[in-house]
Design a protein around this nucleic acid. Sequence first.
DNA 1: GACTCGTGGGT
DNA 2: TACCCAAGAGT
Length: 297
Amino acid sequence: MPTDHARLVDRVTTWYDDVARDLPWRSPDRTPWGVLVSEVMLQQTPVVRVEPVWRTWMSRWPTPTDLAAASTADVLRAWDRLGYPRRALRLAECARTIVDRHGGEVPDDEAALRALPGVGEYTAAAVRAFAFGRRAVVVDTNVRRLLARTVAGAALPAPSYTVAERTLAETVAPPEDVTAARWAAASMELGAVVCTARAPRCGACPVRDLCTWRAAGHPPDAHAGRRRVQAWHGTDRQVRGRVMAVLRGATGPVHRDLLADVGKDPAQVERCLAGLVEDGLVEQGADGRYALPLAPA
DNA sequence: GACTCGTGGGT
DNA sequence: TACCCAAGAGT
């Protein structure tokens, strides 16, 4: 099926050249560091929420050296409500690692990128493709869905990333650096704005005539009902989030009494505070009050 | 592999 | 309203 894959790549990349969103980390004057920051922020967080935070962040800490010197409290406040604040800690540690081991420059090879805190298979590939224009097999949730539909004929990919998907993505990715990098950006974009999870806009799709899922009459998700739903109400994550929101908004250390109402169960609040301290997101002073950590973690 | 980890908008 | 889901990583 190389011919079909080549047609898919050609159509999607041509479409992308016309309609790509004008995102700041795609600007011609972008830096590898700016790309890396965007990728970490975009992990599980929508573009619309990341963009303003990214702009402020890059203005304040334009290089890894700048971020490496920042206090943890400043980093966590700048992260604001992007969610999963441990990512912010990892990004700061990532900056320090880049300064210590790579002379302040974002590395461009796979192994060095993967060794950075907060950088996994996806992010390493994305940085190689988007920051350095290298061929990398970039597979995120958008690409998984796009390939599931167009090639595999399924409504949605399997709940967890499979070897078969990885192999398929490797096969579809074109061999040349420039084309592969374009395909990486274009396939993600199509999944994000047209081939969406809930209400795909097939009428606007440049490859609708090639789509196996469409040809099969849009069969329903075979994994429906077996997908684990993310619990939220009453969970530790909700309580942790409330604690972090209070501490971000506080000007100084906060007494435990002011944190009592973030959860119904005092034991849960206690457990969450201990976990946040353990994670390096919160510090408890000698007087017992809580605050965002001052020194770099 | 199964779990955990935030937040807010769309349907 | 309740649920779904978003450029994943680390344990």
